[in-house]
Amino acid sequence: MIHALDALLDRTILPGYTRAGYHLRKICWAGEDPAPGALRGRTALVTGAGSGIGAAMATRLAALGAVTVLAVRDLGRGERTRHQIRTAVPGADIRLVRCDVAEPDSIDACADALSAEFRTLDILVHNAGVLPVERAENSRGHELTLATHVLGPLRLTDRLVPLLGGSGDARIVFVASGGMYAQPLPIQDPEYRRGEYHGATAYARSKRIQVAVTPLLDQRLADHGVSVHAMHPGWVRTPGLTASLPRFSSALRPALRTAGQGADTAVWLTATTPAPMSGHFWHDRHIRPEHYLPRTRYSEEHLLSIWQYCRGAAGMRAA
Rank of each mutant, 00 (worst) to 15 (best):
P162E: 05
P162N: 06
L163I: 10
L163T: 09
L163K: 11
L163Y: 13
G166R: 08
S167K: 11
S167G: 08
S167I: 07
D169R: 15
A170L: 06
R171Y: 04
I172D: 11
I172T: 07
V173E: 02
F174Q: 12
V175R: 07
A176D: 06
G178I: 11
G178N: 14
G179R: 14
L185A: 06
L185G: 01
P186R: 03
P186I: 07
I187V: 15
I187G: 00
Q188W: 00
D189L: 00
Y192T: 10
Y192R: 15
R193D: 03
R194E: 01
G195A: 07
H198S: 12
T201Q: 13
Y203C: 05
Y203P: 06
A204I: 03
K207Y: 08
R208F: 01
I209N: 01
Q210T: 03
A212G: 05
T214S: 02
P215N: 04
L217R: 14
D218F: 08
Q219G: 11
R220Q: 13
L221V: 03
L221K: 13
D223C: 12
H224T: 12
H224I: 02
G225A: 11
V226M: 09
V226I: 15
V226R: 10
S227A: 15
V228F: 03
H229P: 00
H229K: 06
M231G: 05
G234E: 09
G234N: 10
W235R: 10
V236C: 01
V236S: 00
R237H: 13
R237A: 15
P239K: 02
L241S: 07
L241H: 01
T242Y: 01
T242S: 12
A243L: 10
L245F: 08
L245I: 07
R247H: 12
R247Y: 07
F248T: 14
F248W: 11
S249D: 14
S249H: 15
S250A: 15
R253E: 09
R253D: 06
P254C: 04
A255N: 00
L256S: 05
T258C: 05
T258L: 06
T258H: 02
T258Q: 05
G260Y: 00
Q261V: 11
Q261N: 06
Q261M: 15
D264Y: 05
D264E: 15
D264F: 04
D264R: 10
T265C: 13
A266L: 04
A266K: 04
W268R: 11
W268C: 05
L269W: 01
T273D: 08
P276G: 13
P276T: 11
S278V: 07
